[in-house]
Design a protein around this nucleic acid. Structure first.
Length: 328
DNA sequence: GCGACAG
DNA sequence: ATCTTGTCGC
């Protein structure tokens, strides 16, 4: 996987002295304006200020934005003025005149988009599993760049958890809306491949085909590993909710791609969509079968376990009376 | 105040 | 997702 962070830092080095660029322009140079917040985050964590001149990156309206390096925003203003960029009231004057956007770039996010399009063509929305007796709920918790992933094997017949598989990995790819899978796939793959039990279906925290390119993290994982997956998200990424009642349809580009469902005493719905090798109705059925609270049990418990992994840095104590296995 | 795009 | 105290409600 491409190191987007270093790629960004190299783009920032292209901004000449006396010029400035913007978070959006850099996101565009990475290949998608959706990455603007990720650009801001990565620059906030810039380990080599001045060498990577992130002080030359400002907001689209000319305001300076943040500067978390030594000296703060005052220092950012001083550096820019010393380089000949006029600043008044923490704002770049005549931004157009000083704006640099002519980056030499291969727009790496475009390649990832192409990869998503390739995977999207391989998604199969049809039920291949008769009985989804066991479900593997997968969730990830983070501390900085450390990802604690948990797959919780859940017995949907007896309504109880069986085993928790936990792993710890380092992530480098930032969170960018619609590119979530590139951040989470490695950790998910590790926990799926490392487990010595195979659930009948996997439930993943995030969307399946309820995604602008029909390839949310659940579908991405399903196709990449050839496993049946269901996506369950707590917030809406795209599409429209139609109808009334506890279970409503979610429509995207004129097609029903999932459901918005209220479980327990929830006031906010969860958004259910097929990942791979399951139908829209099949995905809903699987989730309904294990839902007592807002979030379905396999994911709710996986979430708790992943959090425990993070807080204890993997020094886990037995909980819920289930088996815990650490994947190395 | 609006826009506010999963984790 | 994470940063965060006490507080509210079932």
């Amino acid at each position: 996987m491409i190191n987007l962070r270093e790629y960004l830092y190299n783009l920032v080095k292209q901004i000449p002295r006396g010029r400035v660029s913007t978070y959006s322009a850099l996101a565009e140079a990475l290949g998608d304006v959706r990455a603007r917040r990720a650009v801001a985050r990565m620059l906030a964590e810039n380990p080599r200020p001045i060498i990577v001149p992130c002080h030359r990156v400002v907001m689209s309206d000319g305001r300076l934005g943040g500067y978390s390096a030594e000296g703060g925003i005052q220092r950012k203003a001083e550096l820019l003025m010393a380089e000949g960029v006029p600043i008044r009231n923490n704002r770049v004057l005549n931004l157009e005149k000083h704006l640099f956007t002519e980056f030499r770039t291969e727009k790496p996010l475009k390649r990832l988009r192409a990869e998503q399009e390739r995977l999207a063509r391989l998604v199969r929305i049809e039920d291949i599993v008769e009985n989804t007796r066991t479900i593997g709920g997968i969730d990830i918790s983070y501390r900085g760049d450390v990802a604690y992933a948990c797959m919780l094997l859940y017995d949907s017949v007896r309504g109880k958890p069986l085993t928790a598989y936990c792993s710890r990995t380092i992530v480098s790819f930032p969170y960018i809306p619609t590119y979530l899978a590139f951040r989470e796939y490695p950790a998910i793959e590790m926990v799926v491949r490392g487990a010595d039990e195979k659930p009948d279906i996997y439930m993943i925290d995030g969307n399946g085909i309820l995604h602008p390119l029909s390839i949310g993290v659940a579908s991405h994982v399903g196709v990449s590993l050839g496993i049946p997956t269901v996506g369950v998200a707590k917030r809406m990424l795209c599409g429209e909710v139609r109808g009334a009642g506890k279970i409503r349809k979610v429509v995207l580009k004129g097609k029903v791609v999932g459901h918005a469902a209220l479980f327990g005493r929830a006031k906010k719905p969860v958004y259910i969509s097929p990942g791979h090798l399951v139908s829209v109705e099949g995905a809903l059925r699987v989730v309904c079968g294990v839902s007592r609270h807002r979030v379905p049990e396999p994911l709710r418990l996986a979430h708790i376990m992943a959090n425990n992994c993070r807080k204890s840095d993997m020094r886990l104590l037995p909980e819920f009376g289930l088996k815990i296995k650490i994947i190395k």
